[in-house]
Design a protein around this nucleic acid. Sequence first.
DNA 1: TCGGTCATGTAATTTGTTACATGATTTA
DNA 2: TAAATCATGTAACAAATTACATGACCGA
Lengths: 177, 177
Amino acid sequence: MRKLSELEGAVLGVTSLYEPVTPYQIRKVFERSPNPHWSGSAGSIYPLVERLARNRLLSGRAHATGKRRGLKYNITASGRKVLRSWILEAEHEKLVGISDLLRLRFRFLPALKVAEQRRFVATMIRKMTEEVEKIEADCHQTSSSHDDYLHLTARGALLMARARLAWLQEVWARLFQ
Amino acid sequence: MRKLSELEGAVLGVTSLYEPVTPYQIRKVFERSPNPHWSGSAGSIYPLVERLARNRLLSGRAHATGKRRGLKYNITASGRKVLRSWILEAEHEKLVGISDLLRLRFRFLPALKVAEQRRFVATMIRKMTEEVEKIEADCHQTSSSHDDYLHLTARGALLMARARLAWLQEVWARLFQ
DNA sequence: TCGGTCATGTAATTTGTTACATGATTTA
DNA sequence: TAAATCATGTAACAAATTACATGACCGA
């Protein structure tokens, strides 16, 4: 199988953590992710999981609850190998960069009237403050989960969100005070 | 015209800052961006610019240097209006979230042997340290550019990159020391 | 004048989303 | 038992990338 896409890698990774899983469970992990990068829509997950199974990176076993039937998937040995190389052999540039839809818009702020700029930045400060609080809660919750990796992932989100809030406050002070 | 995609908004924004511009110049802005979110490939930019022009958000005027001919684009009044609403009416959730391909992989690190995990984190610390230095240089350079927005954009990138580096060091201390 | 870069494009492909369809299960 | 949600899918579309093609310009 050719190089994995980001979503394929993520699906493989989620399976490695929570196997055995149904495609529906995988979808929910993405949907409920504190900061969803993917929609986790059926249209993306089901065909993708089938493709991974066809390539023997996942193996599906029938399961049924009541009349409802479907497949639960486990990661195979070769799937685990591919997951490892997806993690290790990613282009470093891609991993190092941080793309940021808010900062992108900030760059074009001069297209707005000053009053609109103020309102925009003020709103984003408010929203980011809420976001930081949300992540703090998540972070606190995961700290007692006995899964260091989960907790440290949340810590990462927290540090980044705080940095962004600090930046917005710097912007406010510099431009509007 | 329906709601703008991220790249369409960005093209409109770049045009608003540097007009009049050729599609080629727009491409280069994306390619040379310190932290490229888009490839700026010809295949994305040329058709996109034509589409924006067909919808009267950009207006093209013929220009020629020597025998080479093409179009330079300006943003129209209606283009500026659409750009404003692209900035202001974005879904806040989308702007607040920070997607992070490195943190994504970190979540699945347990799939690696501990020695591989160490090597991965150590490598990323090294790469992020370089990245921070690069952005610091960019930040210093833009501080004398009389474009507050450009400089503050670089500051944003710097604060985020530093936060990520701090996170990686926290990860290292917690897991491998 | 030859090779490399500049500049403008087009075609095929990849990746993921939205919208739709359908039946099972749970809850009011 | 009706409505809401769970669960599994499919089809059409959207967005952006890669690879290709072509000619202009510039420096050795």
